[in-house]
Amino acid sequence: MIQLKHISKHYPVGFGKNEVLKDVDLTIFPGEFVSIMGPSGSGKSTLLHILGLLEEPSTGEYLFEGEPVQRMSEKKRTQLHRGSIGFVFQAYHLIDELTVYENIETPLLYKNMPASERKSRVADVLDRFNMVAKKDLFPNQLSGGQQQLVGIARAIVAEPRVILADEPTGNLHSDQARVIMQMFKHLNETDKITIIQVTHSEQNAAFGHRVIEIRDGKIQ
């Protein structure tokens, strides 16, 4: 499904540069549930952003479902964002001007889904996250954890083929975290959705099939 070959990423810092990822090779198969772990600043988010087509690697090759990402047109990438990839941000990134309901609905709008189907899907997801009562609130009326839940709901509502989640439970109580993890596991097992998550918690990592350790930009 996903194949990284000799991927590295560096940022210019002053006159030099800061190597964040160094020669990363990684293969993730369809239907896998993978956890990425590592200390703060080791490059986890950067790696996930590259996987999610949000950032370009400095060198190396990235194949998404066998297709080289570097050569994809803007249009094709947008297409992938609409159908194939669901992204959960470490910083939630909800749209402040939209309600919970509307935030979750947005990806479906971009998929041009008919209104009735949109309605039932959003209702279904709200139900699953126990957020029906909060559907008309705005992000700034929610707690950090609740916002994170909305972010996750938004990522899965379009039923993508890959979910990329950057510390999806970072702000949640461990009980809530377990519920999310179970949901991921369920999506992974029944819907065959590939899941890649970044986490600091051993327990969460245990829900996945394997753990990728990253340290100083290198996979261990």
């Binding site: 999610g52 249009k75 159908g83 971009y110």
Partner: peptide, 19 residues
Amino acid sequence: ASRAREVGVRKTLGSQRKQ
């Protein structure tokens, strides 16, 4: 600034530039 963030989120959710 605040609109830019919205642009970013929308793009990751699959919005095209022309939209």
